[in-house]
């Protein structure tokens, strides 16, 4: 499964939900499909996308929040999984695109390439629903089930270590930030 295909497959479900992504390929690919004011791309601070999603989900229980995370980022904030699980917001779906590498900095393998299982770690941290998806069908099914479940879910999507040719887009970081804040204003 390619990440861009997975994003394309669920793009229609992202259109009216709050989306927080990590930097790198996830941000660039989602923007290539189509930026929306309800999408925020955390273009650094690796590990904190899930924490931002938690903060938004706790403050806006009326809205569904999707975090698009990655293996490299999540490995930098594994403790954050225990915080997610502790508060387990029912309106948060946590997707981890696991390409077993730090693609944007040369493709060096992460620990998921040597057996670390992020879905199992999330489950053991106390995340009530977890799933691993290896095909596009498995991913879209798991994603739709998570949206319908109304319970914190971590979905690990195993994807190929391929991405866009460039990571910098024409969307300014602060433009994105203020547009997103304005979108969220009650």
């Amino acid at each position: 499964m390619k990440r861009i295909d997975a994003l394309t497959a669920v793009y229609s479900r992202l259109q009216d939900r709050i989306v927080v992504t990590i930097m790198g390929a996830v941000a660039a690919e989602l923007q290539s499909i189509g930026h929306r004011p309800n999408f925020f791309y955390l273009q650094h601070a690796m590990g904190l996308a899930s924490s931002m999603g938690l903060g938004i989900a706790l403050c806006r229980p009326d809205r569904q929040v999707i975090v698009l995370d990655g293996d490299g980022s999540l490995l930098m904030n594994l403790g954050g999984l225990t915080t997610l699980a502790r508060y387990r917001p029912r309106n948060l779906v946590h997707v981890v695109f696991d390409n077993e590498s730090l693609l944007s900095v040369g493709g060096f393998p992460t620990a998921t390439s040597t057996g670390s299982d992020l879905a199992a770690i999330a489950k053991a941290a106390g995340v009530p629903r977890t799933a691993t998806a290896r095909t596009l069908d498995e991913f879209t099914r798991a994603f739709d089930e998570a949206l319908a479940a109304g319970e914190l879910t971590t979905i690990v999507a195993k994807v190929e270590a391929v991405g866009p040719s460039a990571f910098v887009t024409d969307l300014g970081l602060l433009e994105n930030r203020f547009q997103f804040q304005r979108y969220l204003a009650p």
């Binding site: 904190l48 996308a49 924490s51 938690l54 903060g55 969220l184």
Partner: peptide, 13 residues
Amino acid sequence: EGVGISAGAHLAG
């Protein structure tokens, strides 16, 4: 983690 949570809270008002 608190930085991310506060950032999310701020953007959410």
